[in-house]
Nucleic acid binder design. Structure first.
Length: 496
RNA sequence: GGCGGCAUGGCCAAGCGGUAAGGCAGAGGAUUGCAAAUCCUUUAUCCCCAGUUCGAAUCUGGGUGCCGCCUCCA
């Protein structure tokens, strides 16, 4: 895996054999999540699934930042409490993540529940002389930390200071150095606040993560995750705080995902170029399409979101989904349930009946995933596995299927089994797309439609294709599309 | 100005020194009265220049273009 700390690929070695501790930076719960968040959590979900699949016991912790200026602003504009806004957005977050098939983290601590450890961590830093308080604020003294900049490769003397006046002036006057950052902020009137040795106030942004890592996972963890935009200053500051307090390394591996771009620019709330996960799902984009969209690019590279790229993912997913569903959709013909499922890994290794090509696909998949989570490459294995299965389903659909030899039939089954198994490692699951025609049919006269189809059928039998096409066009005009299937069956769907 | 990253067919995208995965779109074909859907087949020498090497998309040096970070951010 590429370790941001060393900027190179390193072999992964956990602190304790067989166990992995992971901390993933979560969201600030002030609004719905957008596609950028989706990418981050899909990618880390795949990392987690893969580690579990490889046999590791993974302890995955992800926080909710539920104390923040943006939440406070939102609350005041909606005349709600900060807690109300947070609670609502945590619910929405879960709804979106569940829909995307992202496994829930083992623990999801909140800043509001971690105040004790936050306060004691700040006291610790103060006792060590790395923090100073000014009028109820407490700041971390960046210049005292000798390794500051190790993660982001920065030399503070060369950084922009207070660029374009984007930094709070009051804050700046209190700081001893422009790069010092707040550990604790005194409360302004009317703001939610919590008691502390420095007066009423609330924690700064970075300290909660340091406190939570320590409280939930210990002094040193295996992997720390987050978006590339968090490298500086967030993660740099986290390292400074944690390592000063404990004297230990915070995380052995740091992994960062690339941004989602919109016409070459980062998707973000402030630029207003974002698309929420919710609106995508509501517009009929399937969760699995979004996973495919995300996983088709390497996690560290920027990923451009366009209408075309989404359409490509949609079509791609349809094909893969077809292959994933073959054993279920055509079970009545294939009768694959007669085969023992068993342990696929053992079957692949020990059974000499297993075709070499399947073993190769399996090995290749692992090699690609081992190589810094090459999901794009791993997907190509899935498509390769799926191709013959799609052919098979086409034969069945067009009535050209005939029972193959027992051996071929069994290897088709194994192929399907392997495909479903590997897809699951990427969190991709077959979706049943049958019976969509009944969704909003209440608005339409079903009897009329079916009567029309019957009339058209008669016209077709008597080779009156002009009438047949006219009926189809008329139905099309009222939003009903007809599809002739083998065996004289006509299906209809409602067009949006 | 500092730090980091990227540049591969019409579009997206893998590739990590041994002769270009995969997806989408397009084209041709199968199927179909025609459609749609589905399946089959098929399309590149890798931004530019110089070098290292038997051999480079892959390494080195120099360009050019784009992006991220240096407020908040996944």
């Amino acid at each position: 895996m590429t370790n941001t700390l060393s900027r190179r690929k390193e072999a992964f070695k956990p602190i304790r054999p067989g166990k992995v501790t992971i901390y993933c930076c979560g969201v600030t719960v002030y609004d719905l999540c957008h596609l950028g968040h989706a990418r981050s959590y899909i990618v880390w979900d795949v990392l987690r699934r893969y580690l579990i699949w490889k046999g590791y016991i993974v302890n995955f912790v992800q926080n909710f930042t539920d104390i923040d200026d943006k939440i406070i602003n939102k609350a005041s504009s909606e005349k709600l409490s900060m807690e109300d806004v947070s609670a609502r957005n945590i619910r929405e977050f879960h709804q979106d993540m569940d829909a995307l098939g992202i496994m829930r983290p083992d623990r999801m601590p909140r800043a509001t529940d971690s105040l004790d450890s936050i306060r004691s961590l700040i006291s610790n830093l103060q006792e060590k002389g790395f923090a100073y308080s000014v009028d109820g604020d407490v700041y971390f003294s960046v210049m005292k930390h000798s390794n500051y900049g190790q993660l982001s490769g920065r030399d503070l003397t060369n950084q922009y200071i207070n660029p374009e006046g984007r930094v709070d002036k009051d804050d700046e006057n209190k700081k001893q150095n422009a790069f010092d950052f707040a550990l604790w902020k005194s409360a302004k009137t009317g703001e939610p606040s919590y008691p502390s040795p420095w007066g009423n106030g609330r924690p700064g942004w970075h300290i909660e993560c340091s406190a939570m890592v320590l409280e939930q996972l210990g002094e040193t963890i295996d992997i720390h995750l987050g978006g590339a935009d968090l490298i500086f200053p967030h993660h740099e500051n986290e390292i400074a705080q944690s390592e000063t307090a404990t004297g230990k390394k915070l995380a052995n591996y740091w992994m960062h995902n690339g941004m989602v771009n919109v016409s070459g620019q980062k998707m973000s709330k402030s630029l207003g170029n974002f698309t929420t996960i919710r609106s995508l799902l509501n517009s009929g984009v399937s969760p699995m399409t979004l996973r495919l969209f995300v996983l088709q690019a390497h996690y560290r590279k920027p990923l451009d979101f366009t209408k075309e790229s989404l359409e490509a993912a949609t079509s791609g997913w349809q094909g893969l989904n077809l292959a994933l569903n073959i054993g279920i959709d055509y079970e009545h013909i294939l009768l694959w349930s007669k085969y023992q499922k068993g342990d696929l890994n053992i079957t692949l290794k020990t059974n000499n009946q297993t075709p070499e090509s399947l073993k190769k696909h399996h090995q290749r998949f692992i090699a690609l995933m081992n190589d810094d989570l090459n999901t794009s490459g791993a997907l190509s294995i899935l498509f390769d596995l799926g191709r013959p299965l799609r052919s098979l389903s086409n034969k069945i659909k067009t009535g050209h299927y005939s029972k193959s030899s027992v051996q071929d039939d069994h290897s088709s089954f194994l192929r399907w089994n392997l495909l479903v198994h590997l897809a699951k490692v990427l969190g991709l699951k077959g979706e049943n797309i049958k019976s969509q025609s009944s969704i909003s049919s209440c608005e339409l006269d079903v009897e009329f439609i079916e009567h029309s189809i019957e009339l058209r059928k008669r016209a077709k039998v008597s080779k009156d294709f002009a009438t047949a096409d006219r009926i189809r066009n008329e139905l099309n005009n009222i939003g009903v599309e007809l599809f002739d299937k083998p065996g004289g069956i006509t299906e209809w769907h409602i067009n949006e």
